[in-house]
Amino acid sequence: MQMSEGVEWALHSCLNLAWADGRAVTAGKLAAFYDLPAAYLNRQLQALARAGIVTSTSGPRGGFRLARDPARITLLDVVVAIEGEQEAFRCRQIMRDGPGGRSDVDYRRHCLVSQAMSRADLAWRRELAAQTLADIGAAVERKHPGAPRAARNRLDLPAD
């Protein structure tokens, strides 16, 4: 399974917004932070807004902010906002057309391959749901204590 680059961009943008201390940051500034295409990042930010992860404000002091506390935004929230809710594995029930297959059987529930893939998907989702932006931010800050200040400076946000 491979996620789109939009997931990485969205996660890093959310982390930078967490360090912006509630101040609005434009899509252009967030894109410039990592030299990303602003129009494409803006689409990711709009998806995050539709999911209630960020809010957007227009105008000269407008931009994006986290919509809720980083401790209440999981990595799974961001992944689902960008990639959608569908499972990575989609059972097409090919066993119906195989030897001994039956049209009256739901092979998504009876196929051991499908069951194994569903368990793996559930484990992956549980791991992402167990980690919040606050968790990641704290880990980054332990390793790089100046990261929040450096992010605010790079985003050209005034000092507190």
Rank of each mutant, 00 (worst) to 15 (best):
Leu76Ser: 11
Pro148Tyr: 02
Asp160Gln: 11
Arg142Met: 00
Arg72Asp: 13
Ala32Leu: 07
Ala49Cys: 13
Ala27Asp: 14
Tyr107Ala: 11
Gly84Cys: 06
Ala49His: 11
His110Ser: 13
Arg72Lys: 11
Gly52Asp: 06
Gly63Asp: 05
Thr26Phe: 04
Arg152Gly: 06
Lys143His: 03
Met1Thr: 05
Ser56Gly: 01
Val80Lys: 14
Ala51Asp: 13
Arg109Pro: 03
Leu112Pro: 09
Arg61Pro: 03
Asp106Ile: 10
Gly100Asp: 06
Arg43Ala: 02
Ala27Ile: 03
Pro37Ala: 08
Ala134Glu: 01
Ala116Glu: 04
Gly59Met: 13
Lys29Phe: 09
Met117Ala: 14
Gln115Glu: 11
Cys91Ala: 01
Leu157Cys: 03
Cys14Trp: 01
Leu11Ala: 05
Ser56Asp: 02
Leu133Gln: 11
Gly84Arg: 08
Cys91Trp: 00
Cys91Arg: 02
Arg108Cys: 03
Leu133Thr: 12
Trp19Pro: 05
His144Ile: 12
Ala88Val: 07
Asp21Ala: 12
Ala120Glu: 13
Ala27Tyr: 06
Asp121Tyr: 11
Phe89Asn: 03
Leu155Lys: 07
Arg23Trp: 00
Ala120Thr: 13
Gln115Phe: 04
Trp19Glu: 07
Thr55Tyr: 08
Val54Cys: 14
Lys29Pro: 10
Val54Tyr: 06
Leu75His: 04
